Amino acid sequence: MPSIVAAAVSYFAAVFAVAFVLGALRVTLVAPQTGPLLAVALEVPLVLALSWLVAGRVLRRWPMALRERLALGGLAFVLLMLAELSLALAFGQTPARFLSDLATPPGALGLAGQIGFGLIPALHRQRRG
């Protein structure tokens, strides 16, 4: 079990660090030009591709069976959502506003990407040998 926690924290931290920078660029540079929905639609595939690469590295370090990879992804998803909520609160949003934003088209697309992030470790093929 400790390797699942270590792997989940590593996966979350690596992807979140880059996604945080991409999110800042999306909000400040891309969304004013394209609108929020297109900006999120451009960002999500980049973050998912990064997630795929990071998951591969994490799973090489900590090889796991499918059940453990599901747990890894689930824990990483929870860490991601807690980090997102913490950022929202730090920027003055209420928890209710954070949740209601997930029901908007850009929020729903972002949430779909976050769910994908959580599923990627389970979808990653485990290499043998």
Rank of each mutant, 00 (worst) to 15 (best):
V15D: 03
F16C: 13
A17K: 13
A17H: 05
V18L: 09
V18N: 03
F20E: 07
F20D: 09
V21Y: 09
L22R: 04
G23P: 06
A24V: 09
V27M: 13
T28D: 10
L29T: 02
L29M: 05
L29I: 01
V30Q: 00
Q33W: 10
Q33M: 12
G35I: 08
G35S: 09
P36Q: 15
L42Q: 01
L42W: 02
E43H: 12
P45T: 11
P45W: 13
A49N: 03
L50N: 05
W52H: 09
W52I: 05
L53C: 13
L53Y: 07
G56Y: 06
G56E: 05
G56C: 04
G56L: 05
R57F: 04
R57N: 08
R57A: 01
V58H: 01
V58K: 00
V58R: 00
R60Y: 01
R60K: 07
R61G: 00
W62E: 12
W62Y: 15
A65R: 09
L66G: 03
R67S: 02
A71L: 09
L72K: 03
G73Q: 05
G74K: 00
G74N: 02
L75P: 01
L75Q: 01
A76G: 05
F77L: 13
L79H: 01
A83H: 14
A83L: 15
A83N: 14
A83P: 10
E84S: 14
E84L: 11
L85P: 08
S86A: 15
S86C: 15
L87G: 14
L87A: 11
L87Q: 08
L89D: 06
Q93Y: 09
Q93D: 14
P95I: 11
P95D: 15
R97W: 11
R97K: 08
S100D: 15
D101I: 08
L102S: 05
L102V: 10
A103K: 07
A103V: 13
T104P: 10
T104E: 13
P105T: 03
P105D: 10
G107S: 09
G107E: 09
A108R: 11
G110S: 11
L111K: 13
L111I: 10
G113W: 01
I115F: 07
I115Y: 03
G118T: 06
G118V: 04
I120C: 10
I120K: 09
P121K: 02
P121M: 02
A122E: 10
A122Q: 11
R125L: 09
Q126N: 08
Q126F: 01
R127I: 11
R127D: 04
R128M: 04
R128L: 12
R128H: 07
G129I: 11
